[in-house]
């Protein structure tokens, strides 16, 4: 076996993947919050020590191979001196193992304690997992400051954000690796997760607990913004949906509200109040369709409405029969909901 060639192969295959910038937006190795930095630091410490341990074990195997004696079949026994030397070495290694493990345990313990220390005035966001999308509600003691959206979460940098995590159907898991470890959303339980983003950026997250047919396509986007940008975004989200600006959009709104769409989707200010699907009040401002399945473009949207089952098999949105003309109107209307 040519080990160099083998290593080269791995490196060749790995390099593009590791270098391509796009990968970084959902990666443990590219921490973008204080919490994720702590986790990554611990991870690298463990990895370094463990790699060393492995190298030592393999070195021992190689050494004993080199030191082996010519085989013959007569059984032998270690003499007392050999026995006691081996015993001493093994005992020493076991003691060393124990020390490393104690340090590992302490490291984990203090990292955990650091992560759960309560921060000041967190922003509260309730995230509810459903097969296969994320409902997002910005909480506030003032009911006029409360609003909902889906699949795209904006947060201000530099301020702790606490996510209250719940699920209504099966278990899901909320995970945006650049920002924080994951936490399950469990029916009948309430969990939470707190993090503080370091700098503005878009981070992808994905459901990590197997939740059925479309577990693979249950992503979300965390958009970390400067406080000013966040504030502006928030003000925009608090407004009701924009009224139709053209005849086509008006037709779209009519079809949406009077048709079956409104039984599942909310568009506040337009008279659509369904709760089983994502809130679409500001759908046009979001960058993806159907929990990260595809980019939010008019043609993608038209394809989605035409046959959601084709694009996301098993999804809980039915195919609604519409003429191309009517569908076009709905698309125009929804895309205008900035």
């Amino acid at each position: 076996m040519n080990a160099r060639r083998f290593a080269q192969q791995i490196a060749l295959a790995a390099a593009p993947a590791l270098l391509a910038g796009c990968v970084d937006s959902q990666s443990v190795l590219n921490p973008q919050s204080g919490e994720a930095h702590d986790l990554a630091r611990l991870f690298w410490i463990f990895t370094t020590v463990c790699s060393l341990v492995w190298v030592l074990v393999v070195a021992a195997l190689l050494t004993l191979l080199l030191r082996r004696r010519r085989p013959d079949s007569t059984p032998e026994t270690d003499n007392l001196e050999q026995q006691s030397r081996k015993t001493a070495v093994v005992a020493g290694l076991v003691a060393l193992t124990a020390v490393i493990l104690v340090l590992f345990t302490l490291g984990s313990f203090y990292t955990t304690r650091g992560l759960i220390a309560p921060g000041p005035h967190p922003l509260l966001i309730k995230v509810t997992g459903a097969q296969w999308w994320w409902q997002v509600e910005y909480e506030d003691s003032d009911p006029t400051q409360v609003f909902s959206t889906a699949n795209e979460i904006h947060i201000p940098v530099g301020r702790p954000v606490t996510f209250d995590l719940e699920a209504t159907d099966v278990i899901h898991s909320f995970w945006a690796p650049n920002l924080m470890g994951k936490q399950d959303l469990i029916p009948g339980h309430r969990n939470s997760l707190t993090l503080t983003a370091d700098k503005p950026g878009e981070y992808r997250g994905q459901c990590a607990e197997f939740c059925g047919l479309q577990h693979s396509h249950m992503a979300f986007l965390v958009v970390a913004q400067t406080p000013a940008e966040f504030w502006a975004w928030r003000q925009a989200q608090l407004k009701p949906a924009a009224p139709p600006a053209s005849g086509q959009q008006a037709l779209g709104q009519h079809l949406f509200v009077e048709g079956s769409c409104a039984t599942c989707h909310t568009i506040s200010g337009a008279g659509a109040g369904g709760k089983t699907g994502p809130d679409l009040t500001h759908f046009g401002s979001r960058s993806t369709i159907a929990a990260g399945l595809m980019a939010n473009t008019p043609s993608n949207l038209a394809a989605w409405i035409k046959d959601p089952q084709e694009l996301k098999p098993g999804v809980n949105m039915p195919q609604v029969p519409l003429s191309d003309h009517d569908r076009g109107a709905i698309v125009a209307y929804l895309e205008a909901l900035k």
Binding site: V28, F43, F46, C50, V53, S108, T112, L115, G181, K182
Partner: peptide
């Protein structure tokens, strides 16, 4: 030993919150 050592890594709560599942 590789598997055992990654076991020790995921036994750490903070690390596991990242790599679990």
């Amino acid at each position: 030993v590789i598997g055992g050592l990654t076991g020790v890594m995921v036994a750490s709560v903070p690390i596991d919150t990242q790599v679990h599942d």
